[in-house]
Write a protein that binds this DNA or RNA. Structure first.
Lengths: 133, 133
DNA sequence: AAAATAAACAATAATGATTATTATCTAAAA
DNA sequence: TTTTAGATAATAATCATTATTGTTTATTTT
């Protein structure tokens, strides 16, 4: 938490109430939330907040490495406060997203594949989760 | 090629000129094409074809396991004729998509992770390709 | 502290990919 | 041939995301 604010300060980014609220919404649950969900959570305390603002804050956080965007569902973005690299699982039954730690995932360590230099890796698993089967 | 038609026949799916054209567009290049690109290629021979038709044919093929959809770019779908499981690399510079064969990818073999049963896995790498650096 | 400047925000419109609808046409079945 | 179901074209609708614009708020300068 503290280091996030430090990071923002280093880059001369103002910590406004809206931005704080977005970050808290993400960090409190430590889950994958859609933009709409984040918007919903914030609106309780900041009725005047705009959806476009939430988008722009999330985009700012993404660029600064404070939040990560995942696209495991094809039709909308989710964001999470975790920034360390890991994979995800999507349950086709209950639609829940799980974090997946792939212990020895060679791809996560690798600096390149086929001569291409890797900056980022998204691993999306699809199936039925342990709760649903 | 032949086996694709067999597969369609088994499931009582008519092989229309439009459907044939979509399949050929995908198979000829063996690349990842956007819906728009496929539409463009087909339109030369079938000026009357509709974009909505291309969408519906691709959706049909996806469901039948004849084509695969990937969402490596966040804002639009790509389709490919390859149906065996493999990963992809997206070059942020030239925007090209490469196939990636991850020789020993434990995730591709695994039947489950954390107790969740896996039906499908998408691995998306992002970075700069060997041509661009 | 007041004025000037820059950044953040809200409201809203615009964009663009995808999906739904409906009428027409084609092909298979009776 | 008639009937029926499926496929297609044309087009409208949807919906997530992005762009725009005017206003407000905070920072910097004087």
């Amino acid at each position: 938490m503290e280091e996030v604010f430090k990071k923002l300060k280093e880059k001369h980014i103002r910590l406004t109430p809206q931005r704080l609220a977005v970050y808290e919404a993400l960090a409190r649950e430590n889950k994958h939330l859609t933009v709409e969900e984040i918007y919903g959570k914030i609106k309780k305390r900041f009725p005047a907040v705009s959806l476009a603002t939430v988008y722009s804050i999330l985009e700012l956080y993404r660029k600064k490495g404070i939040a990560a965007e995942i696209r495991i569902t094809f039709n909308r973005s989710c964001f999470e406060a975790r920034t360390d690299s890991h994979h995800h699982f999507f349950c086709r039954e209950c639609k829940k997203i799980y974090d997946v730690e792939l212990r020895p995932c060679p791809a996560l360590q690798a600096a390149q594949v086929d001569g291409h230099s890797i900056e980022e890796l998204h691993g999306y698993f699809y199936g039925i989760c342990r709760e649903c089967r």
